[in-house]
Amino acid sequence: MTRRLALRTLVVTMAFVAATAISWWALPIAAGLFGALTARDRSGAVVAGFAGMLAWAAALAYDAVIGPVGAVASTLGGVLQIRPIGVYVLTLSFAGLISVCSAIVARSAVRAFASRSASGG
């Protein structure tokens, strides 16, 4: 079960990385799609949120391989008047937040549509 969840999270993370390659706004769209597709799954939103954070963390890791990510964090942290670690937290939190919220909203919408269809309404 755990392995399956991990594998699923990994696949979703990769999909979210691909979405982010388009632009940041593609992430909540992808998360919403995932939430809709897994509307019957109780852990779908959590997976989406976690995968959103992981996707951006992976992209940051890629940046770090190429260049001085720490310097960027220091620079932006200086401008925002927060510590560099706060910039990482802010970035990953933002990704997690838009992913989980988008998944919850999409899942609820699908369920609402499904229950209305089932009731013949």
């Binding site: 982010t20 390659a21 632009s23 940041w24 951006w56 992209a59 940051l60 940046d63 990510v69 960027v72 932006l76 802010l90 970035t91 933002f94 990704a95």
Partner: peptide, 8 residues
């Protein structure tokens, strides 16, 4: 904050 196109 976009890690691909943003400030990072």
């Amino acid at each position: 904050l976009d890690p691909v196109h943003g400030v990072w």
